[in-house]
Design a protein around this nucleic acid. Structure first.
Length: 593
RNA sequence: GGCCCCAUCGUCUAGCCUGGUCUAGGACGUCAGGUUCUCAUCCUGAAAACAGGGGUUCGAAUCCCCUUGGGGUCACCA
């Protein structure tokens, strides 16, 4: 029997799950499923300063949300958007722990082994010394590689110093003595990649704080966890020779490697959460330069730069509590890329920041199955002109041979189109349920304003126009304000209410009055009944329904854009519809420009 | 800069391995029409690519080389 296929996804818990990480996890999962193996989740938390348990939980939550569940790894339970309760993780093969920070004893065993066989050695340079050497090399336009200074110390003395350092608890690192020959990496996607002798330096495998470094910990864990296939992004390709060298020194088998193309921004740059800061900063700067839009304009219509700057700074200070003006200035000037600041600014000025992490897409109201589908297309294709598929399809069809080699740019417009299609294909009931689920988490105003039966109507009203769930709040904005607080758009009023009409054709205002007068005849406020009523009124007024819809739209929502007017009326219900009509008709003379 | 990877419409890609069936297919976007009470949909149609140069071959998007371009990576991060 062939060994069980084991793939792994090994994030470091230093933030949210990146969209690229989601693709890696998805492919690892799909490959394991396809081969009836196990997908394992390992938490690489050896960087004590940056790792956090909250991040680990967040990453697992995002994976569960996407439907990428691990067979082995930390135990995790969650509710999925479709209402299913799911469980992931476990330790069927008795691995012990999936958190690297808890595996130090294992790493140390192999560190000692490497030292014994002469492939590991202590080095005593300080980070500052190394940094200076590196800088000096760069200044001379030379490539810096560790000069093996510690190796030139006589062996006796070297170990004596190490023991002394252990006793006195002075810091030192352990380095791996790289092989003298070329290293060949056999990659399932890229083929054979050769790294010439001497290219690989004696890299550090254990830090002064006693924690292992990435390349070493990975090799030990991949071996002790029985990983058979390593699927990861191409940015790791240059780590592979180091890992292979380590495996060879330790006598470990080398797993199959498959390096996937990178996912990039539309401009070809790396997709990074710093892009959020860049976007927020650009919006602020544009405004200060006099090209601002939207929410900024409302803030300070003044044309001189000084008062604009003052207004923006005031608003920013207010939006970012606890932040000093200096920090704020640093952010705007680009000296700081603090994401929280960017998000606060975005919220205050209704900017939309680029989605980078899975959580961003979640919040924006994308469907997890669409994210999986779309992301799978970045670097993989089933061929035969198929591009819409489920994760179950992936689990039966995914294969390494169809992974591409070229980097892919992340096209949000296409993603949006995919999501809109998927939402349109949902039944009304499913859409309602999932919108409710999303709103509970990200837009509670929707569920609090529209309890139970009315929420159904809300979902019905916005469904056709929702590309993502967050569109729902925008689409239903007219119903989220009180009857006497929305404002009438003067241009719309002029155009729809006081349009000049041919003799004998009623004006917008007259149609409004006629409709208002007819309301007692409308007994049920559902889409169907309202539509029939509208048809009826149009008939008696001898106009097309369109002629009456637009004045109604202006009267009931204040503007010219809204869901179909019958749905607007149904959602508003009898009281609001009457109140709003009355308000508009009463205000009409004054509204006339 | 050293090392490594890559190269088909604006974008994601099919085709490449196993040269001819490719006047290069699909999708998103764009443009032009049409449907619709606004918007969004929806329908029909169109424009749009083998980076350049050398080979090999009867024949190259497909194989080889060079150039150019893009990307990754060079930590006591992962």
């Amino acid at each position: 029997m062939p060994p069980l296929t084991i793939t792994r996804f090994a994030p470091s818990p230093t933030g949210h799950l990146h969209i690229g990480g989601a693709r890696t996890a998805l492919f690892c999962w799909a490959f394991a499923k396809k081969n009836h193996g196990h997908f394992l989740l390992r938490i690489e938390d050896t960087d004590q300063a940056r790792s956090s348990e909250a991040s680990a939980r967040g990453i697992m939550g995002d994976m569960a949300w996407l439907g990428i569940l691990w067979d082995e790894g930390p135990v995790f339970e969650a509710a999925r958007p479709d209402g299913r309760h799911v469980k992931a993780g476990g330790d069927p093969r008795d691995i012990g722990t999936f958190f690297q920070a808890q595996r130090l004893a294992i790493y140390n065993t192999y560190i000692h082994k490497l030292i014994e066989i002469g492939r590991g050695y202590p080095a005593f340079e300080t980070p500052e010394e190394l940094d200076a050497k590196r800088k000096a090399a760069t200044a001379k336009k030379e490539t810096y590689r560790y000069d093996r200074a510690a190796l030139s110390i006589p062996q006796e003395e070297r170990f004596a110093r190490m023991q002394q350092a252990d006793r006195e608890r002075t810091p030192y690192v352990i380095r791996f003595k790289a092989p003298d020959d070329a290293i060949y990496v056999e990659d399932e996607v890229l083929g054979e990649v050769k790294y010439a002798a001497g290219e690989t330096e004696d890299f550090v495998i254990r830090k002064a704080d006693g924690f292992p470094l990435y390349n070493f910990a990975v090799v030990i864990d991949d071996f002790t966890m029985g990983i058979t296939h390593v699927l990861r992004a191409q940015e790791h390709l240059n780590n592979t020779p180091r890992q292979v060298a380590l495996q060879q020194a330790l006598g470990f088998p080398t797993p199959k490697y498959a390096h996937m193309p990178l996912i990039q921004n539309p401009d070809g740059s790396k997709m990074s959460k710093r892009d959020k800061a860049k976007t927020a900063r650009k919006a602020v700067k544009d405004f200060l330069a006099g090209q601002g839009q939207g929410a900024f304009k409302a803030l300070s219509p003044a044309s001189d730069k000084q008062s604009r700057t003052a207004a923006v700074l005031d608003a920013l200070r207010e939006a970012t509590p606890g932040m000093s003006s200096i920090d704020l200035t640093a952010f705007i000037e680009g000296d700081s890329d603090d994401i929280t600041t960017a998000e606060r600014i975005a919220q205050r000025f209704s900017l939309s920041l680029p989605e980078i992490e899975v959580h961003d897409f979640r919040k924006a109201g994308y469907l997890p199955e669409v994210i999986c589908n779309f992301v799978a297309l970045l670097g993989w294709s089933p061929g035969e002109n198929v591009e819409k598929f489920s994760v179950d399809f992936l689990a039966t069809r995914f294969d390494l041979s169809r992974i591409g080699k070229t980097n892919a740019k992340f096209d949000r417009v296409k993603l949006l189109s995919f999501n809109a299609d998927a939402m349109a294909a949902m039944s009304d009931d499913v859409f309602e349920e999932r919108l409710r689920h999303w709103a509970d988490e990200f837009e509670p105003s929707l569920t609090s304003r529209f309890p139970a039966d009315r929420f159904k109507l809300l979902a019905q009203t916005v469904k056709a126009r929702c590309k993502v769930f967050s569109d729902a709040a925008r689409q239903a904005a007219f119903a989220l304000v009180d009857d006497d607080t929305y404002t009438f758009d003067p241009a719309a009023v002029q155009k729809s209410l006081f349009n000049t009409t041919a003799p004998g054709v009623p004006s917008g205002v007259e149609l409004l009055q006629a409709f208002a007068a007819s309301l007692p005849g409308l007994d049920a406020y559902d889409a169907q009944s309202v539509q029939s009523h509208l048809d009826h009124v149009a008939l008696t007024q001898n106009v097309q329904v369109g002629a009456i819809a637009q004045p109604l739209r202006v009267a009931l929502t204040g503007g010219t854009v809204s869901p179909p007017i019958n749905l607007v009326i149904a959602l508003l219900g009898p009281a609001s519809t009457r109140a709003r009509l009355a308000r508009c008709i009463e205000a009409c003379p004054r509204l006339r420009p």
